[in-house]
Design a protein around this nucleic acid. Sequence first.
DNA 1: CCGCGAATAT
DNA 2: AATATTCGCG
Length: 311
Amino acid sequence: MGEEVRMSEYGGGIDGGDGDGDDRVSEWEAGLPSADDLAPLSQPLISLELASAFSIAPEPSRTLLDVNRASESTLAGLRGHRTLSQGFSSNNEFKSFVEDRDPAAAEEEEAEADGSDSRKMRKIDSAEEADSAMRTDNSVEDPSAKAMKRPRLVWTPQLHKRFVEVVAHLGIKNAVPKTIMQLMNVEGLTRENVASHLQKYRLYLKRMQGLSSEGPSSSDPLFASTPVPQSLHESPGGGGGHGKGHAPMSMPMPYGVPPHMPMPVYGHMGMQMGNPQGFQSNHYMVPQMDWSAGNRCGSLVSYPNSGPNDK
DNA sequence: CCGCGAATAT
DNA sequence: AATATTCGCG
């Protein structure tokens, strides 16, 4: 039955070469050709094992909001559904990778069912040297921690994707940080995070629109390939119950986006009508990994789990 | 509370 | 240098 495999404790962060708190764990960004998003989840728990090996503890925080489910449905089924009949339910998805002085690196696992040719032996082991210098913020384990400084949240492509999707669904109209955050259902996401990212995202969009033909260079590879369907949908009062909702004016969207359903095209990209430049012609696929998180805080309650992300 | 801008940290 | 996060103001 559902038993969490928790064999090895977090042997510390996989933080390699940690100089002085200045390292990155986003290795995946190196451009790991990962399988598509539609990776068959034959064994949803397999990653757990791997994860645990990496110090990713399973967080049975099964708090799927209806909204999440709803959005999933609306979004036309995100990637594989891990909704198992019962028994094993790895719901610990959406989580953001966090990094801090004492970070735990979360590594994506290659779900290559058939590694006939694609076989990459990724060995990501970084021996963390026992630094005699210990930081004062050793509060890695303390459920009763009250003020846990939120580590740096890294917007993983997937996370961003989710963000974009949510924004698209909400419509630029209701795309307010709070609603977005709530809809994203990402644990540990704060309004500030979203707000900041939203700003950037908007800027990016703006920039793109202004110079849809001029692309000196790829600005944000991450944001790239993220068209924003102008589907102005009304979201239920999910956010704050704005019972308003209507008259979505067609905002100037020179995108020329045909009635495209906000279909989150996962794991694929390439068609982008906003950039004739062709810089993104190449499929620089985003490393795709499960939405797991490298929570290093004892892997246990990091945030109030009463709600997935209710702040 | 939300959005923006600047400052700051990594 | 780039990006994220935080702070302050409207």
